[in-house]
Design a protein around this nucleic acid. Structure first.
Lengths: 210, 210
DNA sequence: CCATCGCGGATAGCATCACTCCCCATTATC
DNA sequence: GATAATGGGGAGTGATGCTATCCGCGATGG
């Protein structure tokens, strides 16, 4: 497959494919001449993964590169890959980390996790994100929303068990690794979309604040 | 309160406060002279909401403006406000909407929702987002992940019932409206953070693909 | 009462990001 | 042998979320 074919069959414009090559998201093709290279199915597949991570997962180009490097690292243990995916998925940190209010929220996040008996890395980005959200809720005087945290935790714990089981059910390592990444990133997209739909359905019939 | 105080107590830089005023995110203060204005607690509160939506909710400035206009519209029924929040929260649509693969995914999204008996607006952005994710999973040959959809739907349905009940429990309309927005946007941040932590915990003890 | 500081209002500039365009010499392909 | 496509690379683009600077006015402090 030539680059133009790769572009056509993937639906990604040729300049963009070149850009991904330059950025190291897409590995170079096998050179067949001084200015010619051959691309295979793996490239097409990789290109689709890139688009999914960028468009559906809202990762940055740098984040995608990070994830793909981890995917390609055959040595990396699975949970490190998960950590890399979580780091790449984490957007820009809030500015107010370090304020007393945030520190308190961060401690609360730690307590929530510990209270559930969850064993997670001390510096998991998701702990900071949880603290961001808790701090924001408190600042806005919406602490009663925190009553939902237990239910969220309960639900996500059950879902995570199934997700992990699903990925582990795969045959080879390569399939597991891709499943891990897509499950993490695209699964999140599916979950949030369904949450919004469930909210809409639930609030539709009821008398809202109107 | 003068603008400099508003800036100092909120932690938002003065040029940024001015920018929000220009962009119509923050209503102008009550003028006390030709070049002086008075800001109140409502402004401080609003400023914090803006930062939460921007930083934690990852909304764009345009999205925040949209949400705040809906919040301030006393006539708007509650479920319209929810719809506005969902629209503002929706990022850039995927490029491949309109391809046969996407159309099929979109139809599948419709079936999933209908199969649950969920009554949602035909053109809810979340339906398209769900289709985006389904299309991406199919393109990547990860269809077995779709087995999770039912569990996600079940969980989000239960959570949505509680969330809506929590918001409706509030006294006045203003509190409901703010609860609706923060519950939608910040609740999502809490839920995804917890999901990542649950994943990490669940996959930590097990033998991963390493 | 006058110097200075902060105010509001506005325009312009900046950094980042994800592309997109154009150029080149080279080389398939018709 | 003419045309088109290729790889490689640098520069340009448009959107976004600020940030900097300027201006004339007026509140404030000695």
């Amino acid at each position: 497959m030539k680059i133009s074919e790769l572009s056509r069959t993937s639906g990604v414009s040729l300049p963009t494919v070149k850009y991904y090559l330059r950025e190291g998201l897409l590995p170079p093709g096998r050179p067949t001449g001084r200015n010619q290279a051959e691309y295979g199915d793996a490239h097409l597949r990789r290109l689709r993964l890139i688009r999914a991570l960028l468009d559906v997962g809202n990762l940055s180009v740098a984040g995608v590169r990070q994830v793909l490097q981890a995917v390609d690292d055959a040595e990396l243990p699975g949970h490190h890959l998960l950590g890399t995916a979580h780091e790449a998925i984490a957007g820009v940190p809030r500015a107010d980390r370090g304020t007393p209010g945030w520190q308190a929220a961060r401690a609360e996040a730690g307590r929530i996790v510990a209270g559930r008996g969850w064993r997670v890395h001390e510096r998991a980005p998701a702990l900071d994100q949880l603290a961001d959200a808790i701090a924001a809720l408190r600042e806005l005087g919406q602490e009663d929303m925190l009553a939902m945290v237990d239910d969220y935790a309960e639900a996500t714990e059950r879902l995570a068990r199934q997700e992990v089981a699903l990925v582990l059910a795969r045959g080879d390592r390569a399939a597991m690794v891709e499943g891990l990444v897509t499950g993490t990133v695209l699964g999140e997209a599916v979950l949030t979309a369904l949450r919004r739909l469930a909210q809409e359905h639930t609030s539709a019939g009821l008398a809202g604040p109107g």
